[in-house]
Amino acid sequence: MNKDLLSGAALLAVAGTYYTWSTQIADSTLSDEIGADGLPKVLSVLLAILAACLIGRALLAVRLHAVAATTGKADEEEEDENAPLPRALGFLLFGAAYVFLLPFVGYIVATALLIGGIALYEGAQRRSWIVPAAAIGGAVFYWAIFVKLLGVNQPMGSIFQGLF
């Protein structure tokens, strides 16, 4: 399916959902003429119109492409330099795991696991001593910057709080 057609449909869904939510915004006696739901409603209608334009344009392009294909003038698809979706989402899963683990294992352990995990995911040699060294060194370095130097609190980890 054409990417523009798909994204137009997705945006139409976003506009619909956003409009539904904006009808649920509570009324207030302090409100002005426009109200808290005024702009959200305008934006959802605007997005719906733009999404419809995008879909219309995509359908027109599909039709023109089909005509061009029969006459042998179809353009080739542009090469996509981005990582495939599963690979990219896999990368992001490390971040999700970090968010999940941070309150339990604390900043240093979670950061070391993140750096080490990503290094292996991105192709570092599994038996190399550099991976654990970089992971631990990196975590301690960031801890020194954020916690010690800048005085920013990072989670200590419920596991360690129980131990000490």
Binding site: F91, F94, G95, Y98, V99, L102, P103, Y107, T111, L114, I115, G116, G117, I118, A119, L120, Y121, E122, G123, A124, I130, A134, A135, G138, A139, Y142, F146, L150, V152, N153, Q154
Partner: peptide, 25 residues
């Protein structure tokens, strides 16, 4: 492979600093 992990960790550490919020992450 090392750089990506370091940048990712730096970004997540920085975001957490904003409001000390996992939700922000």
């Amino acid at each position: 492979h090392y750089r990506a992990g370091f940048i990712f960790a730096l970004i997540l550490s920085g975001i957490y600093t904003l409001n000390n919020s996992l939700f922000d992450l």
